[in-house]
């Protein structure tokens, strides 16, 4: 990395605090380096999702936030969600129900890749990568849970994010599938050198991530 000396890559929280009224929910000062995972654990209502909303820029105005969030050195504060280059996976896949599997992926694929044939080829390749070759014309509602999770992952990756957020992303999957999808997501993030922040209340997720753990009260 040529300019790694001047700018610290990764997802960085500089004296970040988030409060609701007088109650401080989050207090964080750390960096998630590319390819590393930070797991934030805590009971429901402890502000896990609030932290993710602050990173995606969808924080409810009722909360007050101080400090900064930087992604690869860039301050995210004034950027709208769509310009932050943050990928997110929820517990539900949120595949767009009105679009085919291929069109869902095309929604994520950057418009800078031009030409119908090239785009189609890129989408087919992304599907093949996760063992779903030929699924482009399928209705997302007809997929199994594991297939949907993989489509959601590939859609997110096609948008070329620079960081990845996981919001209880594996909690709906049953145990066998859960380990399999989890391994796929973490391995992909490592290969692409994405900093990952996951929030969960499940210890097996934290163990699988094999990274730092930050506990919320």
């Amino acid at each position: 990395m040529a300019d790694g000396n001047t700018i610290r890559p990764g997802l960085r929280f500089e004296k970040l605090t988030i409060s609701l009224g007088q109650t401080r929910l989050i207090s964080l000062d750390c960096t998630i380096a590319p390819g590393e995972v930070l797991t934030v654990m805590g009971p429901s209502g402890s502000g896990k999702s609030t932290l993710l909303a602050a990173i995606t820029g969808t924080l409810d105005p009722a909360f007050t936030m101080t400090g900064r969030i930087r992604l690869d050195g860039r301050d995210l504060s004034d950027l709208p969600t769509e310009a932050r280059q943050i990928g997110i996976l929820f517990q539900d896949e949120y595949l767009f129900p009105h679009l085919s599997v291929g069109a869902n992926l095309a929604f994520g694929l950057k418009p800078s890749l031009r030409g119908r044939a090239e785009r189609r080829a890129r989408i087919e390749a992304a599907l093949a990568e996760v063992g779903l070759a030929g699924f482009a014309d399928r209705d997302p509602a007809t997929l199994s849970g594991g297939q949907r999770a993989r489509v959601a992952l590939q859609r997110m990756l096609l948008s070329e994010p620079r960081a990845l957020l996981l919001d209880e992303a594996f909690s709906k999957l049953d145990t066998g599938l859960r380990a399999q999808i989890r391994a796929l997501v973490f391995e992909t993030a490592r290969n692409r050198a994405l900093p990952v922040l996951q929030v969960t209340h499940d210890h097996s997720d934290a163990e699988a991530a094999a990274g730092e753990i930050h506990a919320l009260a």
Binding site: T56, T58, P80, T81, E82, I88, Y94, G108, S159
Partner: peptide, 10 residues
């Protein structure tokens, strides 16, 4: 969340 997902995709 559907909005967040779509926005996060750019």
């Amino acid at each position: 969340n559907q909005d967040t997902i779509a926005r996060a995709l750019g």
